[in-house]
Design a protein around this nucleic acid. Structure first.
Length: 439
RNA sequence: GUGGGUAUAGCUCAGUUUGGUUAGAGCGCCUGACUGUGGAUCAGGAGGUCGAGGGUUCAAAUCCCUCUACCCACCCCA
């Protein structure tokens, strides 16, 4: 007689979320390590904040769609209206504002928050993702914009990407605004539509683009000017009629700085970069995969004049970017940049039988005390099985101490990569292992 | 929210057009050949309510209906 089975629960993770099994976690850690290293090399400090914030924090500035359709929110037991953070910027602005008078400026911070948005999942887009956020507050000059872009490039280089893999498209909101308002005289009413068309140009056919901007009220002459504007190279800015505008001079300054840093090759002026968020006021940039099958921006950022102002009377400018783990993972996947994952241990210590348990554990303990990562066979088993297990886990060295070795205080070490095997005194074993591993 | 695709073993997939023995393959897993040595080879084994529910039929993985999940694209974004 068998009991009727209870209905089983699903093993599938909640829609739009991921399980990180150890092999996934290793890759995530690798990506985060590259990000952290890039930020720390510029002296940025890590911070974190709560995953829950009051709903009002986002209602104020985060944009209609994000709040109305994508926010996870609920009432807590005291009827407070609580939201799960969909982005980090409001939190960091709140944290900076709370200590606005004591923090030495510039403030250089980074974080790895997990963020939640109620989305329909698809490639590069899930409901929970981790986002590397880097911001510098309190610098009005373009030098900060350059530093932020340098960090972003630093992450890509650490991940193993090169000039042939990605490109950072840079523009400036002021430049776009001068062009639209002063140069060709678009009114506010049509500006949004034109911006949308500009933002989408790369994805549209020439005809579709023309239709879209004509629909937005542009004359054929204005369209010609717009297309010339969008093809501007930063070096051409000097000869352009917008040459004297503040946007143009900021762009020039930024590119001169990037050029002298040897980084101009990773960047190019692309006046079609708009970015959706309203709070950007100056430099804006997006990173694109140069592989043509991946057309969407992988990350982006820019300068925002005053996010802190919603909490404190002080104006404090900021520049920053956010980099999502989902898109970056897709990027390194498709560019063959997933590194060989290191094994979880340096050495596997075998065990023969009940009588060898103590000596086996003692040997592993000895190796750990010498700084090696050692895995013990937990209970006696066939040696072949133990070897197989070690090989499956790609542990590079197996230590064998059977009755033969035990009588003479020796241990046999097998290099699983080369197949070489030696028998040495226990006291010399760590040295041999270190030599084999090159550590 | 709109549109398209997919669902069969742990994984990748045949089989569905034309309903018919006990639903298959490769890889992976377990056992043995091999009582002190992994990858190779050979032999054997475990593992499926064919996404779920209903219908048609003597008979359904296969035909019909409904639902669900996942993937992709649009919108928007990382």
């Amino acid at each position: 007689m068998t009991e009727p089975l209870a209905p089983r629960l699903s093993v599938v993770p909640y829609k739009g979320t991921r399980d990180f099994y150890p092999e996934d976690m290793q890759i995530r850690n690798h990506i985060f390590a590259c990000m952290r290293s890039a930020a720390e090399s510029f002296g940025y400090q890590e911070y974190d904040g709560p995953m829950l914030e009051l709903f009002e924090l986002y209602a104020a500035k985060s944009g209609e769609e994000l709040v109305n359709e994508q926010l996870y929110h609920f009432r807590d037991r005291a009827e407070r209206h609580v939201a799960i953070r969909p982005e980090m910027t409001p939190t960091v602005a709140r944290m900076v504002a709370a200590r606005i008078n004591e923090l030495p400026r510039p403030i250089r911070w980074f974080s790895f928050p997990n963020l939640w948005r109620y989305e329909k999942p698809q490639r590069g887009r899930l409901r929970e993702h981790w986002q590397f956020n880097v911001d510098v507050f309190g610098v009005d000059s373009i030098a900060a914009d350059q530093e932020i872009i340098e960090i972003a490039i630093g992450v890509m280089l650490r991940l193993g990407a090169g000039m042939e893999d990605f490109s950072i498209h840079v523009s400036n909101r002021k430049l776009l605004n001068s062009f639209l308002l002063d140069r060709i005289g678009i009114d506010d009413e049509h500006r949004k539509k034109v911006c949308r068309a500009i933002d989408k140009k790369a994805k549209l056919s020439v005809e579709a683009f023309h239709e879209m901007v004509t629909d937005a009220g542009l004359s054929p002459g204005q369209i010609d000017e717009l297309e010339a504007f969008m093809n501007l190279n930063w070096a051409d800015l000097d000869r352009h009629s917008l040459s004297d505008s503040q946007g143009a001079s900021e762009i020039r300054e930024l590119f001169r700085g990037l050029e002298s840093a040897g980084l101009a090759g990773y960047c190019r002026l692309d006046p079609s970069i708009v970015r959706g968020l309203d709070y950007y006021t100056g430099t804006v940039f997006e990173m694109y995969d140069l592989a043509p099958e991946n057309r969407r921006a992988l990350f982006g950022g820019g300068r925002y004049d005053d996010l802190v102002g919603m909490f404190a009377p002080t104006r404090l400018s900021g520049v920053g970017f956010g980099m999502g783990d989902v898109t970056i993972r897709d990027f390194i996947d498709s560019h063959g940049l997933i590194p060989m994952l290191p094994a979880s241990a340096d050495v596997f210590v075998t065990m023969f039988d009940e009588s060898g348990q103590e000596s086996s554990r003692e040997l592993a303990r000895h190796m750990r005390q010498s700084g090696l990562r050692a895995i013990s066979q937990i209970e006696p088993a066939k040696l072949g099985k133990q070897f197989k297990w070690a090989a499956q886990c790609r542990i590079p060295i197996v230590a064998i101490q059977g009755p033969d070795e035990l009588v003479s205080q020796q241990v046999s070490l097998k290099n699983m990569v080369t197949g070489e095997q030696v028998t040495v005194l226990v006291s010399e074993s760590v040295m041999t292992i270190r030599r084999w591993l090159g550590i």
